[in-house]
């Protein structure tokens, strides 16, 4: 298990290095077109060949890794902050506020998100700029993901509110703010951190799904999902190098699962 974890960390480090310095490994920028060489098979210059408009696939894969690996943690951070805030308020306040927030979370969990996303993106103009598409994907992932962790945070805070040491803090005359920031928060942080690490691989996969449907990051900016669209209508047996993004995706998500913190926290 330990060897597997070390292997996973090494692999992630390698991927990060590749994504941070694409120009070292690849022939050109992700949108640089080698017009005389479209659809080229793998060669020394283009290890993964070029796509239909002559762009270097390795370069696009490395830039796409950068986009996917930045987007997912950022969205996970957004949803965990929202979860911490709303779940914390629900558990702390109790009563009507609690019921309102839990109902909202239940509602969010019961919505078929993929269908809703299709509808929302269908309403938006098709030619959104790459930056806007990144922002929209980020916001969608973050906003739809707050509900499940919020319920977990709420349960943790509610049980902490009944705990001896929080009652004791009140018996010592701590103000509500000090109870919240210094007694509850240090005990909720591990819960939120665990939720963050669960969310990152999940969001990488979701972003890929959106990208494959053409709803994620917009061209010419590459992302894993966008790159996988190339597999449409092509047999991977004929062009196995097209599977590179899928293999990288599986390896990264698997590695993240391996290095997830697994300690049990006292809550």
């Amino acid at each position: 298990m330990k060897a597997a974890r070390i292997g996973a960390i090494l692999l992630l480090a390698l991927v990060a290095a590749g994504a941070l310095m694409p120009e070292r490994w690849a022939a050109g920028r992700y949108d640089q077109q080698f017009r005389e060489l479209p659809d080229a098979p793998p060669s020394a210059q283009f290890p993964l060949g070029t796509d239909a408009v002559g762009r270097d696939r390795l370069s696009r894969l490395l830039y796409g890794t950068r986009v996917s690996l930045l987007l997912a943690p950022a969205a996970a951070l957004l949803s965990c902050l929202a979860a911490g805030l709303l779940g914390g308020i629900a558990g702390y306040a109790g009563g009507f506020t609690d019921r309102a927030i839990v109902s909202a979370a239940d509602f969010f969990l019961s919505v078929p998100w993929l269908l809703l996303l299709l509808i929302v993106r269908a309403c938006l103009p098709l030619d959104v700029s790459p930056a806007a598409s990144v922002a929209i994907t980020f916001a969608l992932l973050g906003l739809m993901g707050w509900a499940a962790p919020a319920r977990i945070v709420r349960a943790a805070v509610a049980s902490l509110m009944d705990s001896e040491f929080v009652l004791m803090a009140r018996a010592r005359g701590y103000s509500s703010w000090r109870v919240l920031l210094r007694q509850l928060l240090p005990n909720v942080t591990p819960v939120l951190l665990a939720q963050f690490w669960i969310a990152v691989p999940a969001y990488i996969l979701t972003e890929t799904t959106l990208g494959m449907l053409g709803l994620g990051v917009a061209e010419p900016l590459p992302s894993w999902g966008g790159l996988l669209r190339e597999l449409e209508g092509v047999s991977p047996l004929d062009q196995p190098y097209l599977l590179a993004p899928a293999i990288l995706l599986a390896a990264v998500v698997g590695s993240l699962q391996l290095i997830l913190p697994r300690e049990d926290y006292p809550v």
């Binding site: 001896e164 040491f165 009652l167 009140r170 018996a171 701590y174 005990n187």
Partner: peptide, 19 residues
Amino acid sequence: RGKAIGFVPQSPLAALNPN
């Protein structure tokens, strides 16, 4: 609370913040 009246609890460990 805590200033003019101090309180010593029944289960001292549970009454300390574990983190």
